[in-house]
């Protein structure tokens, strides 16, 4: 077992150092790039924190969608995603297929929560899904 503080905690500390100290003491392109670098570290920290659980759920959901019953079959995330992509591209599965829309929403929201949690389209999607319009 590796020691603490955790990678997530240490990345957070480096990102804070870059933003609070280095940005102020640099200028122009360097200052801009330090900010970009700090944001990149924070992105990786979010991925370390949330991806294991999100990807386990994604794997289970992919197996259900693709009709794989045995837990040890079907392959890894990349293989199963490639298969889902192929079936969607070929029109063998579509948004009317039970579970497809929910799966795509869940995995895409999980991706955005790591990559771009401040993106306005993501915030809007969260708000829409929290308060769905009546149909």
């Amino acid at each position: 077992m590796q020691d603490q503080p955790t990678p997530s905690e240490i990345l957070g500390a480096v990102a804070r150092f870059l933003k609070e100290v280095v940005v102020a003491e640099t200028k122009g392109a360097t200052s801009f790039n330090v900010r970009v670098a700090a944001n990149a570290l924070e992105m990786m920290r979010r991925q370390l924190d949330t991806a294991p659980a999100a990807e386990a759920a994604e794997l289970a959901s992919l197996k259900a969608l693709l009709g794989i019953e045995n837990e040890d079959e079907g392959g890894d995330l990349a293989t199963l995603n490639a298969e889902l992509a192929r079936r969607l591209g070929a029109g063998e599965l579509d948004l009317k297929t039970p579970g497809v829309a929910d799966h795509l929403w869940a995995t895409t929201l999980a991706k955005l929560s790591v990559d771009q949690p401040t993106y306005w389209g993501y915030r809007a999607a969260l708000a829409e899904r929290a308060a769905p319009t009546e149909t």
Binding site: A40, M43, L112, Q116, A124, E128
Partner: peptide, 24 residues
């Protein structure tokens, strides 16, 4: 560059945009 890496990670913005267009 770090900037290039981070732009690549903006691809998912268009994934959520597309879902909102096609699966809202």
């Amino acid at each position: 560059s770090v900037e290039r890496a981070v732009i690549a990670r903006r691809t998912s913005e268009t994934e959520i945009d597309l879902l909102r267009l096609l699966a809202a």
